[in-house]
């Protein structure tokens, strides 16, 4: 079943992420069931599936935020907790309180906390890195803004900048295009493409099926079980969409 993917993965070289037999349950109801997934290095991958398919859960389980009841995850061949510095995370925008008393720059600086470790404070270098990241997402002018005074799109860019500061090899993003304006969407996708060009791996939980072929080169269909995973060119078709969404799904697939 997975031979096709395996070949591709080998062609691409290293495996960035390998998920083995992962099962996650909420209140003892499986939301992810026996997922095997291999994400090759250097792809820009979308995870698609209907609501409640376990897309965010998959990311959270890979990142160790949720404890799986079975299975294992490895990042470049080692368990996650040994490879934290290689991984950056952009949570859903709605998961935090944007009225928190802090500024845009401050939030971006939080990206450096992981490498600093306990107790040590961020210094000049960390601040420089944060300012650079802000510039990259086009938010330098807003660095001293209180975060509640930013628009939805701007808040999303701040989150992206926070992940960029981590200078990771693999980026996990939970619906970064949710509720953002068109300009931000273009800005974000350009940054994601830049990351891929630099050899980074980017995994994005994505909602808008129309834009999958345009934005991504790799895709995973998920609905509690893994339906399919591979290059968009090969597997993004009505057959897989129908299998994932249950109804007869027609989407104009650009080849």
């Amino acid at each position: 079943m997975d031979t096709h993917t395996d070949e591709h993965a080998l062609n691409k070289g290293n495996l960035a992420v390998k998920v083995d037999d992962l099962t996650v349950a909420y209140n003892y109801k499986p939301v992810l069931w026996d997922i095997d997934l291999e994400i090759p290095e250097g792809v820009l991958m979308a995870i698609v599936g209907p609501n409640g398919a376990g897309k965010s859960t998959l990311i959270k389980a890979i990142l160790g935020i949720l404890k799986p009841i079975a299975g294992s995850v490895s990042i470049y061949g080692k368990p996650y907790h040994k490879q934290r510095s290689l991984v950056a995370y952009v949570p859903q925008k709605g998961s935090v309180d944007w009225d928190f008393p802090t500024t845009a720059l401050d939030v971006v600086m939080m990206g450096t906390y992981g490498s600093l470790g306990w107790i040590k404070r961020p210094g000049v270098n960390e601040k420089k890195a944060a300012l650079e990241a802000l510039e990259k997402v086009g938010m330098l002018a807003f660095k001293s803004r209180q975060i509640s005074q930013l628009s939805g799109g701007q808040q999303q860019r701040i989150f992206l900048a926070r992940a960029l500061v981590q200078e990771a090899s693999i980026y996990f993003m939970d619906e970064p295009f949710q509720g953002v304006d068109a300009t931000t969407e273009i800005a974000i996708i350009n940054i994601l493409k830049e990351l891929r060009k630099a050899g980074k791996t980017v995994v994005v939980v994505h909602h808008d099926l129309q834009t999958v072929p345009e934005y991504f080169d790799w895709v995973t269909f998920l609905n509690v079980k893994k339906i399919a995973t591979g290059p968009v060119m090969d597997i993004y078709n009505d057959d897989n969409l129908t299998k994932t969404y249950g109804i007869n799904y027609k989407v104009s697939v650009q080849k």
Partner: peptide, 20 residues
């Protein structure tokens, strides 16, 4: 029930693994 469910959901996981 937690204990029971934990084992039963593991059983489900295991069976699905075999099926897959």
């Amino acid at each position: 029930r937690d204990k029971q469910q934990r084992i039963e959901v593991s059983l489900l996981t295991f069976l699905l693994h075999l099926k897959n």
